[in-house]
Design a protein around this nucleic acid. Sequence first.
DNA 1: TATTGTTATACTCTATAACTATA
DNA 2: TATAGTTATAGAGTATAACAATA
Lengths: 145, 145
Amino acid sequence: MVLPNGPVSTASETEVMLFRLVDEYDRHYEAAAAELSLTAAQACVLGRLEGPRRMSELAVELGCDASNVTQIVARLETLGLAQRQRHPDDRRARVVARTPRGQEVTADFEARFGFARSAIHRLSAAEQRQFGALMSKALGPELDR
Amino acid sequence: MVLPNGPVSTASETEVMLFRLVDEYDRHYEAAAAELSLTAAQACVLGRLEGPRRMSELAVELGCDASNVTQIVARLETLGLAQRQRHPDDRRARVVARTPRGQEVTADFEARFGFARSAIHRLSAAEQRQFGALMSKALGPELDR
DNA sequence: TATTGTTATACTCTATAACTATA
DNA sequence: TATAGTTATAGAGTATAACAATA
């Protein structure tokens, strides 16, 4: 459950909208994963395997402990969606990649998780640009990652 | 971990910004809770206790099972932040409310979780209105809850 | 009989600490 | 010695099923 609090008494209308936006986003994300019998974390990791990734890279990217990545990737491997191999240059390291089945599931997930797209497509092209610019400004200097 | 996937290949710039916005929101939420030794779920439930709430109400609102609410509220009770009492009119039901200490912690949490406010305050008043209107339009008819 | 909430159970996420293999 | 990853373990979120108390 990653739901934000409901609107607080001092919240502006804009804050309330932001809260709902985040809430809907997260709910749609989990629902799309569940439709494929995946947890959000599994869908999340699988989605990041555009190409072979090192375990450590994933941990940094997700901001979580390496042991956590180990477990999730192990599960994806059991499910036949990902595979670990030794890194050719550093035999301590491992690289994870999607299996062909993992590719399919990823595509399926992205098709189901249409929230971002469908939400944005309710806006005109000009509104989309405006929206992006406003989010960028709102996020401010935290953009570094 | 409720991180969305990284930008997919077909993602528009606007989608990428939305992804980052949601990501930052969730991270700040969890971090603020952790600073108070709370989990996100605990902070979430505590934040919803503006007044006495029925367990069943909370479950519906959070979109989760009642047994889940029982556990989280029980933990909040152990921590001295909330308290359950029998509903005066229906002795099957219970109402949960914050303790005075729970009030303090809630205020503290909201002060720490300044993300929404600080993000929005990077925008001018006119931009805030625009941003709110765009989010509202993007969310579309899902606003019913 | 239906509803509210709890308990028991099981699975997953997550982190910490200890460990193995490699550098 | 330091780094990459795993294993063992424990706390928490979550759902399902069975249950008690009340309606």
